[in-house]
């Protein structure tokens, strides 16, 4: 069982730049056909100042943290037993190429379903851009299969 005293624990804030190359590779990987994600002119026509990050890209920003999996292991999570249970995004303002997003991550819950031999850990992340504008929230529920 993951120690429930970790509930409320915050991770050190981490700032990451939204890179053009990364967004294009993401678009390629998901077979994106909507030009707003790959063509600056199409993005500008929809009112964006630069290529926008697609709706789930915030999760990738959270993975760009160095040694991201070591943070899980430090909590006693065996990576090979880890599954993604739920994911939620709340959107406040767009994220674009060139933005520097600071992620503020906090463990908001740890619970178990012993009958299913499952443990759950909920991580809430606030995303703040370089203008100190709160652009969104992510809620990630991880499942550990025991």
């Amino acid at each position: 069982m993951i120690d429930r005293s970790n509930i409320g624990k915050s991770f050190p804030p981490y700032a990451v730049e939204v890179e053009n190359h990364q967004l294009r590779l993401f678009a390629k990987a998901i077979g994106e056909t909507n030009e707003v994600y790959t063509d600056e002119k199409a993005a500008a026509a929809q009112g964006y100042s630069a290529l926008p990050a697609p709706p789930t890209f915030g999760f990738s920003l959270s993975l760009s943290k160095p040694n991201v999996f070591e943070a899980y292991e430090a909590l006693g999570i065996d990576l090979s037993r880890l599954l993604h249970g739920e994911q939620k995004f709340d959107y406040i303002a767009p994220i674009h190429v060139g933005d520097v997003i600071t992620l503020h991550e906090k463990i908001t819950d740890i619970f178990e379903k012993p009958e299913k031999r499952l443990e759950f850990i909920v991580i809430q992340t606030s995303l703040v851009n370089q203008h100190n504008e709160h652009v969104g929230e992510m809620t990630n529920t991880l499942v550990i299969k025991n």
Partner: peptide, 15 residues
């Protein structure tokens, strides 16, 4: 594909 992303307020899934 259906709506501009600026109109998206929240999006969640269960795997």
């Amino acid at each position: 594909n259906w709506a501009p992303q600026q109109a998206l307020r929240s999006y969640s899934v269960r795997f």
